[in-house]
């Protein structure tokens, strides 16, 4: 894409862009995409621990956002609202893409292997360890420690008890500590 995010932002405030998008302006939507795609992708990659799935989910976020943006009333910051939309879409993406056996027996997927984390650009040492965590521990850790959600909110988002969210967080920390110390 040739649109420069900063240039786009200075010539159109975000509010003005959103108003244009609500009236069906796809060029304004392309600018809004440029402003937020890196943030959305980062969250999808950390939650899904898979580059291709993160790219697919990012596209799904922006396809759904186009249809959903009319319901954004400006009561919170757009970036906060988009963040919550992204988290929910990434979680539902993960559920949708489980194979039938995982769906039937609630089988938990493991995270990325070490080699694949090394191929991800822009990640720090902690990120690379986080992507190796098993699915539930990883999602809780990302949402709580990195994104700042409360366990009550995470429990609602992931459909689990608050206690389970706390214990998954503890499990994630234990695994990260173990891997870090054995590195």
């Amino acid at each position: 894409m040739l649109i420069d995010a900063k240039e786009a932002f200075t010539s159109n405030s975000e509010d003005a862009l959103i108003t244009k998008v609500k009236s069906g302006d796809q060029q304004a939507y392309a600018q809004l995409y440029t402003l937020h795609v890196k943030r959305v992708y980062a969250l999808c990659l950390r939650l899904l621990a898979d580059k291709e799935h993160a790219e697919d989910a990012t596209q799904e976020v922006f396809v759904q956002l186009w249809h959903k943006i009319a319901s954004f009333e400006g009561q919170s910051q757009f970036s906060t609202w988009l963040h919550s939309v992204t988290s929910n879409i990434a979680i539902s993406y993960l559920r949708k893409h489980k194979n039938w056996l995982q769906k039937v027996v609630s089988f938990e997927q493991s995270g990325m292997d070490e080699q694949s984390t090394a191929d991800c650009q822009g990640l720090n040492g902690l990120d690379k360890l986080v992507l190796r965590l098993p699915e539930r521990a990883r999602m809780v850790f990302v949402l709580h420690a990195i994104e700042g959600y409360r366990h009550e909110e995470i429990a609602t988002m992931l459909g689990m008890a608050v206690g389970s969210s706390k214990s998954q967080y503890h499990r994630a920390r234990q695994l990260l500590k173990e891997w870090y110390e054995n590195e």
Partner: peptide
């Protein structure tokens, strides 16, 4: 932690 990461491919055409 970087809260922005760049995807390796351009995702806009697909959107």
């Amino acid at each position: 932690t970087k809260h922005e990461l760049t995807p390796e491919k351009d995702l806009w055409p697909g959107v």
